[in-house]
Design a protein around this nucleic acid. Structure first.
Lengths: 105, 105
DNA sequence: TATATTTGCAACCAGTTAGTTGCGATACTT
DNA sequence: AAGTATCGCAACTAACTGGTTGCAAATATA
């Protein structure tokens, strides 16, 4: 099964999980308590997140702490870069236009 | 049907379409020429992109030019903000650690 | 007016997804 | 050793997705 980070963040529950464990690592049960669904459903989401390496496990006895791989999030940031360039250049153009208008006055 | 921007960018073809029309507005036919699929498939992707307001149409005779709503992309950037804070603070911590080690020498 | 081009919409299909239930493995606790 | 808690895996289901084909509407051209 193909997994990529964009597919991983497409699901709102998964985005919520990411935001949760970004603060601190948590076990599946602890995560599931924050949602209105079964532990197994959360477990499945964690599997998807693990497959695309957005999350890593840390075994501690019978508990497994899931932690966000924050570096992986930078991939989205990297993809956004091309568009950031565009909206910044448009802002600059607007800025220049405004200063031209100002000078004209 | 619920549409949100994260679901829209989950599909690689849609991401490619977005990158294409970010440069300049294009008609469905012109876009479809860049892909190895039918015009109708592209049309469906454009519909999804339109539904979540990532794209706007500009009618010109019988042709419809699709243009990227670059501002909508900022929503992704906004969502990333919370994580950017985390990775920047971790980088700072690493930076401080390195300078402490340096001083110790 | 007849014809061709551009496009969107509806119906359909195969594959995927998110969710549930049931079960077995592992690790603590008494 | 027996019981309990944490967890992943497999099977199943309903809903959704991306894709195709066919068709109708609107605009341009002969």
């Amino acid at each position: 099964m193909r997994r990529d980070i964009f597919q991983a963040i497409a699901d709102p529950t998964r985005r919520a999980i990411i935001a949760l464990i970004a603060v601190q690592a948590m076990t599946p049960n602890a995560i599931a308590e924050h949602f209105d669904t079964t532990r197994q459903a959360i477990s499945k989401h964690l599997k998807v997140l693990t497959e695309c390496e957005l999350v890593k496990q840390e075994h501690q006895g019978r508990e497994i702490y899931y932690q966000l791989e924050i570096d992986k999030m930078k991939e989205i940031d990297k993809w956004l870069e091309q568009f950031r360039k565009i909206w910044e250049s448009r802002f600059q153009q607007l800025d220049q236009l405004l200063s031209i208008i100002k000078k004209g006055k």
